[in-house]
């Protein structure tokens, strides 16, 4: 229902959603959007961010040796690999992105 908010990357081994249909911008859409932004967007972003930190931990543990941190024998991490293939790129990007204290503010 709340397709004004599109998160196009499946965060973890999930099927990609079909591309969201183009939608017309009605007044009610706009109002709903504003209300969503006002009431929920910050919380949703914060939740996603907290989740991202969890995911870091998770990815690091499962695929750490991809970055040169050998954490466990890769036998079982290979089992997980297929599901996280779409995340690897953004995970690495996030991990290596410059991060400043002012980036921590949102949420």
């Amino acid at each position: 229902m709340s397709d004004w908010e599109v998160i196009p990357i499946p965060l973890f081994g999930r099927k990609k959603k079909e591309k969201e249909e183009e939608k017309k911008e009605g007044v009610s859409e706009a109002l709903k959007g504003v209300l969503y932004g006002f009431a929920v967007h910050g919380a949703a972003t914060a939740a996603l961010k907290t989740r991202m930190h969890m995911e870091h931990l998770f990815m690091l543990m499962t695929l750490g040796d991809m970055l040169g941190f050998p954490i466990i024998p890769p036998y079982y991490s290979l089992k997980i690999l297929p599901y996280v293939v779409p995340n690897i790129k953004s995970w690495k990007e996030r991990l290596f992105r410059e991060r400043d204290f002012t980036d921590l503010l949102s949420g």
Partner: peptide, 24 residues
């Protein structure tokens, strides 16, 4: 992973979306 999924669920509920099964 469970904790991460929980936060995902939080974000999803806030957006009114459905939860997807987590294969991982």
């Amino acid at each position: 992973r469970k904790e991460a999924a929980e936060y995902e669920a939080v974000a999803a509920t806030l957006k009114g979306g459905m939860q997807t099964e987590d294969m991982v």
